[in-house]
Design a protein around this nucleic acid. Structure first.
Lengths: 242, 242
DNA sequence: AAGTGTGAAAATATTCACAGCG
DNA sequence: CGCTGTGAATATTTTCACACTT
């Protein structure tokens, strides 16, 4: 089995998230010659789905090898896509047979980096933040919200399960002492940049932003975005012009 | 835990969502001036961002024409991308000047189909659903949650502002009588397909799915998905292999 | 026989670069 | 001038199709 290859940051971001670079300043002169085997961004995102399917099959006790064709039916991606995506990371399939569910699941865990636990900070305990606090699917997959923070003093001390909402000033200390490496930012748009600056300042290098605005982060900090407006407006577009 | 369902599907859709299924049934609407090229999906999603920027500038009273270069800095997309995206729908820019903010905003509203109101049904009043009920950004942009539904009888009658949670059986009637045309599905994964079937059966043709599973919809029904696991796992990947 | 892994082709999407207009 | 709109050039992603392995 091969070794994992790496992808570095895209020159311009694909729309849904993950932008570290800027069209203007960032020269992106880095990999002049190492460009040969880049892993498509969509491949990574599909990997999550493959992983979920493999995990689910394994949990159901369905352990017969999984063909790309079956995976295609289960995920909605094409079989060719499945094979190509997985082949980027080596060959864990057996010809004439398929992909062993257990190994596939384990490999995908490693590739995605979720074979370890990740501790998250939630910043912004409003409606959405509260919902995320009780979103069990995170813990499920090894992501644990280890701290909740909010700028609003009225919210400080409020309890959510084992967590108490803390002031933003305690974020840097918590990040250091509690090995937090990802932040979920769920604050109003007009506070997002300031909050992200604090988050970045505290040493966090991975941010999931729910605020419907573009925020800037220094190179080396990864940013992913969930933008409900885009999703719903895309639906409106499809319903109108479809 | 639910099944891995059989499902035969004409595969291949973009990663995030939005599939009508058929590449044939496309129904492309030519822009203002009969420019009938195919419009990239990413373009549509970027349009939402352009719209937000234009709207925001207009709200701030910044009415000087907006150059593609400035839009680039405001959105993080490249200037060429901005011009190309907008040009798909006609030419509302003035050479040597830029795009008039007001007109741009208005045009984008029309193109996106948000120059009218949209009434939504929220299905699944759990943590996430509750958060969405109080997510003010929706109403802001002309999307109004007009009904909340849940299969759990214990939740029926519960009030959220002007809304009361109703049983699923009342969905079809509500869709008909209250002009609801989009559904937000925020139920656990193992209930998603059943719920979507009811939603589709009630005549809704646009669905925003928050459940982390693949659901099937008949051709002609548009499906968009928000999958938090994918986002967070993508971050984990970037942090691990970046 | 069945199904992976992969060159090569096709399809998409982005960027360049500049003609042309206000 | 400055900036749009757009062909042409590039880059990226998907699909095809088949050699090859179990």
């Amino acid at each position: 089995m091969d070794i994992m290859r790496r992808a570095s940051d895209p020159p311009s971001d694909p729309g849904w998230g993950a932008s570290t670079g800027e069209p203007d300043s960032d020269g992106q002169v880095a990999g002049r010659e190492g460009r040969s085997n880049r892993i498509p961004q969509m491949t990574i995102r599909r990997l999550s789905t493959y992983y979920r399917v493999a995990r689910s099959l394994e949990a159901c006790g369905e352990l017969e090898p999984l063909s790309s064709d079956r995976m295609s039916r289960l995920t909605g991606f094409t079989a060719a896509q499945v094979r190509r995506d997985l082949a980027y990371f080596g060959s864990f399939g057996k010809r004439g047979v398929g992909y062993p569910v257990g190994e596939l699941q384990a490999s995908l865990r490693t590739i995605l980096g979720i074979d370890r636990g990740w501790r998250l900070a939630l910043v912004g305990v409003g409606n959405l933040g509260t919902a995320l606090l009780s979103y069990r699917n995170f813990a499920h997959q090894g992501f644990e919200i280890a701290g909740a923070f909010d700028a609003d003093p009225k919210k400080h001390g409020r309890a959510f399960g084992p967590l108490r909402v803390r002031p933003m000033t305690e974020l840097p200390g918590a990040v250091r002492e509690e090995q937090i490496s990802i932040a979920i930012v769920a604050v109003p748009g007009d506070e997002a940049q300031a909050v992200v600056d604090v988050v970045v300042g505290s040493g966090i290098r991975g941010i999931l932003n729910f605020a419907p605005v573009k925020v800037r982060v220094p190179a080396g900090v990864h940013l992913s975005r969930v933008d409900l407006s885009i999703e719903i407006e895309y639906l409106a577009y499809l319903l109108t012009n479809g």
